[in-house]
Design a protein around this nucleic acid. Structure first.
Lengths: 244, 244
DNA sequence: GAGTGGTCTAGACCACCAA
DNA sequence: TGGTGGTCTAGACCACTCA
C-alpha cells in the first residue's frame, strides 16, 4: 500500500500529498470557497491512510490555504468572509474601535513595469502591469496612500469600475474575478517623511512622519503576484504585530 | 485507560496534557535548554498514548516553547542559541548583510512604575520597576534607542554590570540569570519625529522620521513581563514581517 | 441517520544520535 | 546497539451538520 519508495522523491508521504493538493489548487480543481473531497476520499485517491491525508491537510490549514469545518468538510480558504476580508491589513485603530473603511480610487493605469519592481515580481523589463493608486480612509479621515502594481497578463480587463465594485478589498476582487488567491505576503517597514504631493493627498503637512509599508504578496506555489506600497498616517492607527 | 470523563475539564486530552506540561515549565521542573522526558515516559506518566503526548508537544513546539531533536529528545527552548538569540529583533539590514551588533548602556534605574505602563504589565501603581535605556548600533552606527521596563520583584539584583555581560540580548540574560523565558511578544508600530534628545543620541537631526516600536513581551502562561519602546532609524534597516 | 472532521489508541517501522 | 523522535497505518469512538 505504501508507495514511498515507488516515487522518485524521498520526502515524507504527507508532504507529497500536500504538494499534490497544492497542484490541484493551482490548477483550479477546487476554487476559493469550494469544498475539497473528504479525507477518506482523498486517502483512497492517493492510496494512503486517512491519517496521512489529515496531516497534509493540517499543514495547509495551518497556512490558511484550507479551512476545516467539523461536520461539513474542508474548504479552500477565501478572502470573501468578514473575518478574513482584511487578513493582511495590520493597521488598527489605536483605541481598538471598529471603523468604517472607505476606498477612494485615484488612478488605474496600464504601464510598462519599472526595473526594480519587475525584478521583485519576476517579470521581464518592460512587461505590462496595472498600476493602482488609491486612498483609504477610516471614519472619513485619510489614513493610507496605497500604490499597487500587478502583472496585466493575469488581470485582463481590469479597470476602475471593477475596483470600485469591490470597495476596498483588492484581494477579494483578485480571487473572485481572476481566481488568483494570495496566500501570504512579506512586508518591510520604514519611517519616512511625507513628500509634498503625498502630504496633500493625506491632508497632512509636508515632512510629516509616515509609516512606509512595502509588501510583496504571493499566490499558490509562492509565486509573487502583487507589489504594494502603503504610506500610513499613524496618529490614530497602529501597525499591530504578534511575534511568536 | 482514557480519563477524559474523570477530569472536571472537557477539553481534548492533548490540550490537558499541554497545560500540564506548561505548568511543569512554569514551576521550573525543566529549565531552559534542558531536555524533558521522552514521549513514552510522558505517555506513561499521564496514562495516555504516545500519540496524544506527541500532539501536545507538537503544539508547544509550534509555539517555540519546546524544541524537538530527532534521535536526542525534546528540549525546553532557549534564547541561548545563535539562530534564535535575536528571535524578536525584526530589524534587518536593507541589503541583507550581516552586521556587528553593539550595545551601549545609557541608564539603568530602579523607579516606581508609571500608571500606563503598570497597567500594561499588570502591576499596581507605584510598583518598583527597573528601567533600562540603551543604544543599539549596527557596524558602529547607532540605529535603535531602546527603553525597557521590567518589574523589579522578578529581577532582584539586576544591575548595569549584568546587562553588559550579556551584551545585547536581554532575553538571554532574563533566562539565564532569572529563569524567565519570553515566549511571545506583541508590538505596535508607528512613525514619529525624533525629539531633540533622542535625535542627539542617535546622531540624527531633530524631527527626523523614526520607526517607533512598542512591545509587550510575555512569559509562560501569557504573563506580561516586559515593556519596551524602540526608536529606530530606518535609513539602512527595515522592519521585516511575514504575513501568513 | 449518514457523512464529515476531531480525538485517541496501539503497534509497526524508519532515521538519527550517542555510547 | 538501544533510545529518541518521525512517519504511517488501521480502527475505534465522539461531535457536529444537514437532510
Amino acid at each position: 500500500m505504501n508507495t514511498v519508495m515507488a516515487t522518485p522523491s524521498f520526502k515524507p508521504l504527507y508532504e507529497q500529498i500536500k504538494e499534490l493538493l497544492t497542484q490541484s489548487l493551482i490548477q483550479g480543481e477546487w476554487g476559493p470557497g469550494e469544498s475539497i473531497p473528504s479525507e477518506m476520499d482523498l486517502a483512497t485517491r492517493y492510496s494512503v491512510s486517512q491519517g496521512t491525508v489529515r496531516k497534509a491537510i493540517d499543514a495547509l490549514a495551518q497556512e490558511n490555504i484550507l479551512v476545516r469545518r467539523q461536520g461539513k468538510g474542508t474548504f479552500v480558504a477565501t478572502h470573501n468572509e468578514e473575518q478574513v476580508k482584511l487578513r493582511f491589513l495590520r493597521l488598527a485603530s489605536a483605541d481598538g474601535d471598529k471603523e468604517l473603511l472607505e476606498n477612494q480610487l485615484l488612478e488605474c493605469n496600464r504601464i510598462p513595469v519599472k526595473a526594480e519592481i519587475g525584478k521583485l515580481l519576476g517579470l521581464k523589463s518592460g512587461t505590462s502591469v496595472i498600476e493602482i493608486k488609491r486612498l483609504l480612509s477610516f471614519n472619513q479621515t485619510p489614513v493610507i496612500y496605497d500604490h499597487v502594481i500587478i502583472p496585466a497578463a493575469h488581470f485582463k480587463g481590469l479597470n476602475a469600475n471593477k475596483i470600485q465594485e469591490y470597495n476596498g478589498s483588492l484581494y477579494r476582487m483578485y480571487e473572485t474575478l481572476y481566481g488568483i488567491r494570495m496566500i501570504r505576503a512579506s512586508e518591510r517597514l520604514t519611517a519616512i517623511s511625507a513628500s509634498i504631493d503625498i502630504a496633500e493627498s493625506l491632508g497632512i503637512k509636508e515632512g510629516y512622519p509616515l509609516l512606509r509599508i512595502e509588501r510583496i504578496a504571493y499566490t499558490y506555489g509562492d509565486k509573487p503576484m502583487e507589489w504594494r506600497l502603503g504610506l500610513c498616517v499613524t496618529d490614530n492607527h497602529h501597525y499591530m504585530n504578534e511575534l511568536e
